[in-house]
C-alpha cells in the first residue's frame, strides 16, 4: 500500500501540483483579498477589514439581484433547451433523407465559439435598426424592440442565444440514449394500440430519466457560470438586468477596481459550486443505492 502510494504519486503528482498552482493558489488569494479593502484606485491603502465585504455583499441590492438574474437565466435557458433538445431528438428518430448529415449539422452551435455566436447575434440579428430580426418583424408589421439594450428583451436575448448554443447538447445526449433503447418494447406497445404520445410519455421519458437528469445537471453547471455570451451581448446591462454573477465579479473588479469586494463575491460563488458538486455526488450515491 505504501509503495503503491509512492508509485501513484509519479503518475498523479504532476497534475496535482499544476492544479494546485492554477486552482488552489488563486482560491487562496481570493479568500485572502476578500477580507481587505483592496482597491486598485488606491492600492497603497490596503488593509484588513474582516468580514465587512461579506456583510456588504448581502446588503448590496446589485449583488442579490445578480443572484436572482443568474437563477432566472439558468432556469429559463436550461428549461427551454431541455425541451427543445428532447423534441429534436424525437424528430430525428424517424428516417428521412440525409439524416446523418442533418444530425451532424444540428450539433454545430454547441462547438461554435460563444464569443462569435454572441457577436453574430448582437450585430447581425439583434441590432435594432440594421438587424435581420427587426427587419423580419417589420415585414410582419411589428416594430421590434432594442434587443440587447432594453428590459425585458435583453434578458430574452441572453436566454435565446444560450439556448441556441446549448440545445444541441441536450439533443446529442437524448439522441444517443434513444438509439440504445430496445425497439421491441415500442413495437409491442404499438401492437397494443398505444398512440405516439403515449409511447413518448409512458415509455421514452421514463427510460431516459437518468440521461436527462445528467444532461440537466450538466447544463446547469454551464449556465450558472456563463460569462462570454452575456458579456459580449450586454455587458450586464441595461442597468443591471442581465448582470449574472460572473459578470458582476468582472464588473466590480475590472471596471470599479474594487478588488477585495469582487473577490468576496467570488468566494460566495465558490461556495455555490461546492453545493452544486455535493448535489451531484448525492445524486450519484442515490442512483447507486437504487441499482
Amino acid at each position: 500500500m505504501r509503495r503503491d502510494t509512492r508509485d501513484a504519486f509519479f503518475y498523479i503528482g504532476p497534475s496535482m501540483i499544476v492544479l494546485m498552482i492554477i486552482a488552489a493558489v488563486p482560491l487562496a488569494v481570493a479568500l485572502g483579498t476578500s477580507v481587505t479593502n483592496w482597491d486598485l484606485h488606491r492600492p497603497e491603502a490596503r488593509e484588513f477589514v474582516g468580514l465587512d465585504n461579506y456583510i456588504r455583499l448581502f446588503r448590496d441590492d446589485r449583488f442579490t439581484s445578480s443572484i436572482a438574474v443568474t437563477i432566472a437565466f439558468t432556469t429559463v435557458s436550461v428549461g427551454v433547451s431541455m425541451v427543445g433538445g428532447f423534441v429534436l431528438a424525437l424528430m430525428t428518430q424517424r428516417n428521412f433523407p440525409l439524416k446523418n448529415v442533418v444530425r451532424a449539422l444540428l450539433t454545430i452551435p454547441m462547438i461554435t465559439t460563444p464569443v462569435v455566436s454572441a457577436t453574430m447575434f448582437r450585430v447581425f440579428f439583434m441590432d435594432p435598426d440594421r438587424g435581420l430580426l427587426n427587419w423580419f418583424l417589420g415585414v410582419l408589421g411589428i416594430s421590434g424592440p432594442a434587443w440587447v439594450a432594453s428590459w425585458p428583451w435583453a434578458f430574452v436575448a441572453i436566454c435565446a442565444v444560450q439556448t441556441w448554443f446549448m440545445t444541441p447538447f441536450v439533443f446529442l445526449i437524448s439522441d444517443a440514449s434513444m438509439a440504445s433503447l430496445p425497439q421491441s418494447v415500442f413495437d409491442a406497445a404499438k401492437m397494443d394500440g398505444a398512440t405516439y404520445r403515449q409511447r413518448v410519455v409512458r415509455l421514452v421519458l421514463p427510460m431516459l430519466r437518468d440521461p436527462l437528469i445528467f444532461a440537466a445537471i450538466f447544463r446547469i453547471t454551464i449556465d450558472y457560470r456563463m460569462f462570454d455570451t452575456i458579456y459580449v451581448l450586454t455587458r450586464g446591462g441595461p442597468a443591471r438586468y442581465t448582470e449574472v454573477l460572473s459578470v458582476w465579479v468582472y464588473n466590480r473588479a475590472l471596471r470599479s477596481f474594487d478588488i477585495g469586494y469582487a473577490n468576496a463575491g467570488s468566494v460566495v460563488m465558490a461556495v455555490i459550486v461546492a453545493a452544486v458538486c455535493l448535489l451531484l455526488v448525492l445524486y450519484n450515491y442515490r442512483k447507486r443505492e437504487i441499482s
Partner: peptide
Amino acid sequence: LILGVRFAPYIIFALPLFLV
C-alpha cells in the same frame, strides 16, 4: 476536488490569477 475545479466558474480563478 477535480470535479469541483471542472464545474467552477472561471472568473473565480481568473481574477486572483490576474493579481498574482
